[in-house]
Amino acid sequence: MHGLGGLGLRAQAWSAATFLGSLAALVFIWWAAAGLAGSRAFPPPQDVLAFIVTEAASGELAFHLGMTLMRVGAAFVLAMTIGSALGIALGRHRGADRFFGPWVILFLNIPALVTIVLAYIWFGLTEAAAIGAVALNKIPNVVVTLREGARALDPAYTEMATVFRFSPFRRLRHVILPQLQPYIAASMRSGIALIWKIVLVVELLGRSNGVGFQIHLHFQYFEVAAILGYTLSFVAVMLAVELLLLQPYERAARRWRPGHA
């Protein structure tokens, strides 16, 4: 979908038709398979849709999606800010990297579940513990990606900035961050998808609202339609975030590249 702006109207219509056709085929296969199975554990698409409509009408859906989205947003901002700062610092200072490198590997390999359980035990079943645990899971990934980016910074631009006496802020904004943009985009992409999956676990284990809590609730009654309903609704939310926030941001950031369209 990247190049929509550059395609002709015909090609655009064709690509939209392919997209819709592909989705329709998937729904049809689901419907047919559910009909064959004929079990409450595998409901057809119309049952899931009916659940979404009722849940939306009562306001429950929006509330729980909103809570999850809030946690995803907070953990995402926290992880990107702290992770980028640490990653850039490690990429720029070889000594610091040598010392803290093993820590990064250690945290990179701690399972999300362990971080979450420990955060709840140490800090109680609070919102801060929940969001902090999610962010902590993502930070090492951001650090590793941004460290790679900081190592690849071109000294030619750094020297230019030194000669023309750029202030530290000007240097960060106009020299360093634009060079790191592909690395930031990559960790945002992988981050947003990873974070929302961990948020569900956090909600399942210790929150009384959000998509994860709802899935936990409906799991106890084997309400698969409800589980799928909440999941698909949140996937739709994430798709909207991708289309309305991430892609426009990347397009704007790529504007200077020759042949960006």
Partner: peptide
């Protein structure tokens, strides 16, 4: 003025 122009390509 460096040997290569060293302009920031993203500005």
């Amino acid at each position: 003025v460096f040997q290569e122009p060293r302009l920031l390509p993203w500005r």
